[in-house]
């Protein structure tokens, strides 16, 4: 069994159709803790002791957020800046997070086709996430491929339902610890890995 911490950041959740449903689906999965950062810190004053304590108690850290300007909302960055302290998360004595796993869970307005060399965003999602990947590595964590819900601008109810179902499956898989990180790391998206597993 493994525990999962969802670091959720959305500055206007009340307007996000998809993220509301995703969060709702995640909230009652056993062993999953949802930490709603904008709700917790409306003033951006992050309680570092509380956050570090939360990190220590969990095996997986999911940064769940919409993609804003090819990155995360400001709160996620603030959280990283302040919580992952030198000497605690990284540096010679910073070993608190060693061996934990980190993953981005994202919604993007653009469709998957846009995120490739020939697409109008010119880079893949994975390339845009390089700073997160390197952050995880610097903190001696294992970085897993992201779980992405693409095309939320035009997504229909079936699409949302499917995404919600996939997210639940992902969380159940993670908490059941039947997740081979090394195997999963070969995929571009965590979504692909889930589909493969299901088809087996």
């Amino acid at each position: 069994m493994a525990s999962v911490l969802i670091q959720f950041a959305h500055p206007a959740l009340e307007k996000s159709r998809v993220n509301q449903r995703l969060l709702e689906a995640a909230s009652d999965v056993p062993l999953v803790t949802v930490n709603d950062l904008y709700e917790q810190y409306p003033d951006f004053d992050i309680d570092i002791d509380r956050e570090q304590e939360l990190l220590l108690r969990h095996d997986y850290v999911l940064l769940h957020h919409p993609m804003y300007w090819y990155s995360a909302p400001a709160m996620t960055k603030q959280w990283i800046d302040l919580t992952l302290e030198h000497g605690w998360a990284y540096g010679r004595q910073g070993n608190a997070l060693t061996g934990k796993k980190m993953m981005n869970v994202m919604t993007t307005g653009g469709r998957q086709e846009a995120y490739q060399e020939a697409g109008y965003n010119r880079y893949t999602v994975r390339q845009f996430l390089a700073p997160f990947e390197q952050t995880a590595l610097l903190c001696k964590m294992l970085y897993l491929p992201p779980f992405v819900v693409h095309g939320t601008h035009r997504i229909a109810e079936e699409g949302i339902l499917e995404a919600v179902q996939q997210y639940r499956t992902l969380l159940e898989r993670l908490t059941a610890d039947e997740f081979n990180p090394d195997h999963a790391a070969q995929f571009a998206y965590a979504n692909d890995f889930l589909i493969e597993k299901q088809s087996l």
């Binding site: 570092i48 302040l82 919580t83 302290e85 030198h86 000497g87 540096g91 010679r92």
Partner: peptide, 13 residues
Amino acid sequence: VEEGWDSESLRRE
């Protein structure tokens, strides 16, 4: 200043 915004300990290391 939050330590994350202060590079003092990094410089020391």
